[in-house]
Amino acid sequence: MKNISIIFLILMIVWVLLNNTFQLNILIPGAIIALIISLLMCRRCDIFAEMKFTPKSIAYTFIYLGIFFIDLLKSNMDVTRRVLSPSLPIRPGIVEVKTKLKSKFARMLLANSITLTPGTLTVDVKEDSFFIHWIYVEEDEIEKASEKIVEKFEKYLEVIYG
């Protein structure tokens, strides 16, 4: 039930954004089709099942987005600096980090965030360890690398998805 309503909401938001109006003669067909799609397609999809809907988790979602954007900007400054400096200051390598997150969706978000933040790119995921290509390796021990790369996102995702 929760899945169906979330998928319905997402489809409705996409529909309204695509049409860019709130007229009833556009909203009603959209609502009917979104309802049919969500009922037909979402019997078994459970990716949103672990999501919590408390005020705290919603607030943390916004904080997470903010931090994510700041990190995206920072990572671009970093890339610019590395690309334009004549000596090409890179020290690449693949490091392993561990995550405490259990839900699949949260792990997916974490891997995406790691890819978009300074100097790191997720190469492989095995159970609870992520293998990350780091453009300038500072720490190659698991705990220290996890602290540097994962923790800033993990503490928010943990509240949102548990």
Partner: peptide
């Protein structure tokens, strides 16, 4: 401008993984 830097990075970086790093971040922003 950010996309331009991404393309310079694609030429300057030495291997696939570093090129992907530059390509992803700069092209997203």
């Amino acid at each position: 401008f950010v996309l331009l830097i991404a393309s310079i990075g694609l030429i300057r970086m030495p291997d696939v993984y570093n090129r992907l790093q530059v390509g992803t971040k700069a092209s997203t922003l």
